[in-house]
Write a protein that binds this DNA or RNA. Structure first.
Lengths: 216, 216, 216, 216
DNA sequence: TTTTAAGCGAGACGGTACGTCGTGTCTTGTT
DNA sequence: AACAAGACACGACGTACCGTCTCGCTTAAAA
């Protein structure tokens, strides 16, 4: 698994400049407008040097998304917060205790904020396009991109359940999917004001998650 | 606006066979693997005959998806039910009165059922890819595809609100987005059992939508 | 064998402008310096339009050589004289009777003159390069390029033999090869003054071809 | 000029195995099909080790051809016979006195014999391709390859002239070119039986070279 | 014995051309 | 007019080869 020790080692400069070039072009024109010759040229690198690392355009974009060079704040930051304080993403502060189930409101406000950033929208669209191109890797791509945050959200909700704030029979995975789904949908559908109503949805979810008090 | 009366009329056979060919290829390999030359050949038609009807690949795919050729039942049928009882989509039964807010459970169960069909998943992926391809038309495409169902859902929820089953300050649009978003997310992310937990999510939403009774 | 009557016919303008572009680039930089993208661009044509006609660079060059767009005078003119008064090569005057065997001197003087022309040198080098690239077609290429002139030369020598000016046991094919060979060799080897000594060689050949008068 | 005495000396094994690999690949597929990575791999050597010795592909091919690795006998042997009894080419026997001008017949018979060998044909083609590749070096390359033999031939002819067997005004260089030219032409043009007629041509040349005795 | 200079295997690198593919338009003759 | 057929301009794709470079390691002469 480790890189062969023989021969000239791959240039880490090239790694970086390729990903940056890909990010820039992605932000400028989206997935379609990105082409590998332009990436290579902007990165000051030969096309083959790109292909040596990523076997196709969609792999490159996937790489850029996963490396976190895209969207250094917002959704991606949320995504990696507390999970993999790695590449280019400064770790978010540990979340404090909250009086509501898992700080879901806070969570979704952050999500709403991230929806407004064009860079985040571009990232998500790039992710979707790369995943569409690459049937096999799609699941892995989404998993790696949303996984850490998603798990964090589920843990947070579970902690709320343990504190008795969330009903025990709730499917917390489904709630997490709803949270990510609404963000994805609003970005892909280019809904005008993507953050609108998020707060209200959070309220509904929080209320819906609360333990049932009456027979209703 | 009406078609010119002069000259040879357009072949309706061609319309149908093109859409069928597009559907087949879409199901076989997805959006990327579909190319217009192959569509034309399989339809037994010249390429120009396709372009005379749809101005681009993404429009053709949108057309195939919206015509319901791709998925005569399921999501697409839900989508157009009651709205545009048109091409190839048999109208769903009128929904009966329900004792819960807007029959949301029933709704989401149908949605969940439609998620299980590979053909529907393919439809949604094709739609997403077509929208990604065509930045300007993306909003319109999503609107055309989800619009009718979405409006219906909102109406149903509004009826529930009028009956006092749904709190008045709830952002019903946001709820609708959550419903569609979760479906979209699960399909695009290739989540194994896309329908799992939908019922439970519906319960949460229903409960969350209920009027607040106390201080909570 | 005739071109299919259906569909848009191939543009003869493109045929011509591609060959002209190939010729120009060949004259400017030789075989190596010619690349198909440049040919297409200069011809105002898409690369695929070139490939539709010639399946590779060497085929294109072969085509250019054979079409006679290269070297409209000199060797090529000699080559096509009396044979195929076609593309761009004005037919040479019919040769008059001569007092020496087949006018070999005259022939070789023309050959010598053609050796001085850079365009001819370029043509021959292009021919050699294309033939080298294309093992199977090499024989055909040389045959079609030199064939007509070569046959003409042989006929001329045979006429001389019939008039009793050339010994009957001489292998006239071998003489023809010597004539073409010396030209080829001097061009490929970039011999400084390619025409030097040709006249003297002609004399030797003429004398050598004369019927033996004595026992020697 | 002599190799620096410091450092690790160059491997003579590498020299040999590179030339052998080059020869093999040349015989298998010709100049075009030979690529340096394959040469290096087959020679069990790094690419740089090749480039340390020959500065380019054409130089390597020239080297392989000139070293006689390609054709230890035949044309190459003729070429270097008596001149540079060097690398891999065993010297030909000293030629005996002949009763005809310079033993031209004998010479050309040997040449004809060498034409029959596919390996020699490949050599010549490789040489031509290497020369075509390297415009500046072409003259030098031909000179190095044909020079020694050519000079020998001219000397032989001069000796004949000195003995009064060859007319004094004959351009012997031109004759030599004709001899090499016909060989080159027949090989490059893939003429079926390259050796045919050579003997007869020799007779013609010999006769043509003989001093003029009468009014002709 | 330790430097030091060069050779060497491996393989990445910049560059350039290759030949293919897909989109959307255009041009024939035919219906 | 629409249609079948297929050429066309455009532009991206992924591959191949050239000749250079950069690693870590080896070899042998010089210090």
């Amino acid at each position: 698994m480790e890189p062969s020790k023989r021969g000239r080692p791959r240039s880490t400069d090239a790694d970086r400049s390729i990903l940056e070039a890909a990010r820039d072009l992605l932000l400028e024109g989206g997935y379609d407008a990105l082409n590998l010759a332009a990436v290579a040229e902007r990165a000051g690198v030969a096309k083959q040097t790109v292909y040596r690392r990523w076997s196709s355009k969609s792999h490159l974009v996937a790489g850029a998304v996963l490396a976190g060079v895209l969207a250094p704040s917002g959704i991606a930051a949320v995504a990696v917060a507390g999970a993999d304080p790695g590449v280019g993403a400064e770790a978010a502060e540990p979340r404090e205790a909250s009086d509501e189930p898992g700080g879901l409101h806070e969570w979704m406000r952050r999500l709403a904020a991230s929806l407004e950033s064009p860079a985040n929208a571009a990232t998500v669209r790039a992710l979707a396009a790369a995943a569409a191109d690459d049937d096999d890797d799609a699941a892995r791509l989404y998993e790696r991109f949303t996984g850490p945050t998603r798990r964090l959200l589920v843990e947070v909700l579970e902690a709320g359940r343990d504190r008795g704030e969330v009903r025990t029979d709730a499917d917390l995975e489904a709630v997490a999917d709803a949270v990510f789904g609404v963000a994805l949908y609003r970005i892909l559908a280019r809904i005008d004001d993507p953050a609108a109503g998020i707060d209200s949805l959070a309220t509904i979810l929080v209320d819906g998650l609360a333990p049932r008090t009456a027979t209703r």
